[in-house]
Design a protein around this nucleic acid. Structure first.
Lengths: 114, 114
DNA sequence: TTGACATATGAACAATCGTTCATATAATTG
DNA sequence: CAATTATATGAACGATTGTTCATATGTCAA
């Protein structure tokens, strides 16, 4: 696949567009967040946690999904630093970590309400 | 899979969280947008189009990808009403359609710059 | 220590995704 | 008309995803 000599119809516009594209690392960070929020159950989890902290079985109830499935999804959200957790005895409580995600979610919910 | 009688530790919090979860249709709409933006090439396309309209081969250059691949991605964005297009002779110009997506993208780019 | 409970995790599987390649369509040019 | 250019699309393929099931870990209570 050779894409270096690609034909371009509007060089100036392309150059301007390219200069506005974030670097690979930033791009990866953004798409990771969007991918995390593109699964219905993960989105439900994040929306739920935007209100208050909840434990795993609470979140399973919110998602109407199994504890195991939710735990798997929480690991993904944890790895992306979207959620934090604290253990209290047998129960593990999750809450949102990144405030960017909170505002992103709240803005999105506002848009949907329109 | 029986999830109706799921154990719940914090009934009140769960109830509050559930009442805040958008209905299935809205949920599907939101996750579709996020999924669209979770692919690096589609994100590049949308970021590029946030600045000005571009034709398919311009976008292929921006993504450093093939015309065909970009065309496939544009169809997805078209179906989600994220982009619009207009034909001018042989050339098809794309631009962002939904202003929600524009603001979402611009806000996200702002966050990344922090 | 044993049992019960809450959560985590690895393997496996079907389903979905994004690309490539070949081909089709649409518009322009000669 | 035929040739060329720009874009679209269907089929096929490997890669990734989200779930389930079985099992492991961690904590408490008896």
């Amino acid at each position: 696949m050779d894409v270096c000599q690609e034909k371009i119809l509007h060089h100036e516009s392309v150059q301007k567009a390219v200069s506005n594209i974030p670097d690979m690392d930033a791009l990866h960070d953004i798409t990771s967040i969007f991918k995390a929020l593109s699964d219905p159950n993960r989105l439900k989890i994040v929306i739920a946690l935007a209100k208050c902290e909840l434990c795993v079985c609470d979140l399973a109830a919110v998602c109407r999904s199994s504890d195991s499935a939710v735990s798997h999804q929480l690991r993904i959200l944890r790895n992306l630093k979207i959620v934090r957790y604290r253990r209290e005895g047998k129960v593990v409580y999750y809450r949102l970590d990144d405030h960017h995600v909170s505002t992103l979610i709240n803005q999105t919910l506002e848009h949907v309400k329109e």
